[in-house]
Design a protein around this nucleic acid. Structure first.
Lengths: 216, 216
DNA sequence: CGTCGGTTTGATCTAGTTCAACCGCCGTGG
DNA sequence: CCACGGCGGTTGAACTAGATCAAACCGACG
């Protein structure tokens, strides 16, 4: 693995890590922090596709298919492990088990997108919001980000709106309803989860259900 | 590759190929026909996630991560090439280039899901419908399914509704609007594309833009 | 000849959008 | 030191895209 790694990269909150349309030569792994993947339309409409947490691979689409078709932006200070994209075929040749792990990660991403798609297509605003927050909380929990201190998800209501496909106004009203039910508490650009089970119930969501995870 | 293949499977239109919650032992490639991937909620709401055409891999999530979290159903007679799922790690070990191709396919699926997510989150009903039909037409074209005879996409309006996250009634009204604009013609459980460019324009969509595709 | 799945149409209703303010906080520049 | 502007969040009122309800049509098929 070490031969494949090029270096580390540290970026601030709000920085653009990868940009739609570019032919970036890098592939990253998140070591710490939060980021999100999104697409935009010419007229400015933005859709957040998924969130990236420590352990996630970032830029695989660009590496394997050429041009990036989405952007990635940091939501907190982020530390990245940088790889050389053109060495990816070598990785598959010389370390087939690592190649398999890359496929595992790609499959997991696909699974998350499936669930997000179900959310956007078939869940109500309240269900969607509950789902999103519970989902992020579960992911953070799974990688040990939530200890004795309650977790603060570093997200703004604009992010939530752009993830759920809702207007910012309705997003606000919906989040307040969840807060009134004591399922979460909203802070300044952060969300604290008070009752993950309650959120899951409100969303009609069973949870992630993920096997053992490879470390890259 | 031959050692990996187990056999062929032929199924009728409407058959369930893979089922949510199962631990299917197989992995498939579509040889001919149309199928779709979907998820359902307990109360019956259904969301179609993507469509499967010849060349697509099917059941990778189940193979790599255990349990299937979506189902797959045939929309036409379908011929499948069947693989043994537990031989997948061997494939990566003994044929790294094929392993890479699997990852390529997974990345491509991710890309399509990204675009669908943008559609559901940020496009209007008319844009979504236009996008979906143009998208299917492009995919079919890319694999040479459309020759001198115009292509008939073997889809019902219920499929379209469950893909776009719309009600069946509104889907019908939206498709009629596209038909009035002479962008498509609706037949009995089939859609004929009259003007792909017009559909793309109506959707605000640039097209797929796909590199060279591996054959598995 | 009845029935069933797919499609069509009109009327009514509502979840979510848009518009328009306003508040509190913080960083900047005079 | 204070005024100003911008960003994130909040709230109410008016509006609309799309949902729901209800009914009918049409061709295939037993």
């Amino acid at each position: 693995m070490s031969g494949f790694k090029v270096g580390e990269l540290v970026v601030d909150s709000g920085s653009l890590i990868l940009s739609e349309g570019s032919h970036s030569a890098q592939l990253f792994t998140v070591l710490s922090g939060w980021a999100f993947r999104y697409k935009t339309m010419e007229d400015g409409r933005r859709q957040i596709l998924n969130y990236m947490l420590p352990g996630d691979l970032l830029g695989l689409q660009g590496s394997v298919m050429g041009e990036m078709q989405h952007s990635v932006e940091a939501m907190s200070p982020v530390v990245l492990c940088v790889f050389q994209r053109d060495k990816l075929p070598d990785l598959f040749r010389n370390h087939p088990d690592l190649g398999y792990d890359v496929t595992w990660l790609a499959s997991r991403e696909e699974r998350m997108l499936d669930e997000n798609l179900l959310s956007l297509g078939r869940r109500s605003a309240l269900e969607r919001a509950a789902y999103l927050i519970a989902f992020l909380h579960q992911r953070a929990t799974a990688i040990g980000m939530v200890g004795r201190k309650p977790l603060m998800i570093p997200i703004t209501q604009q992010h939530v709106a752009d993830t759920l496909g809702l207007s910012i106004v309705h997003t606000n009203k919906t989040l307040r309803r969840l807060a009134q039910k004591k399922l979460l508490r909203w802070h300044d650009r952060a969300c604290e989860v008070l009752d993950e089970g309650g959120l899951m119930a409100a969303a009609g969501w069973e949870g992630i259900g993920e096997g053992t995870r490879p470390l890259i």
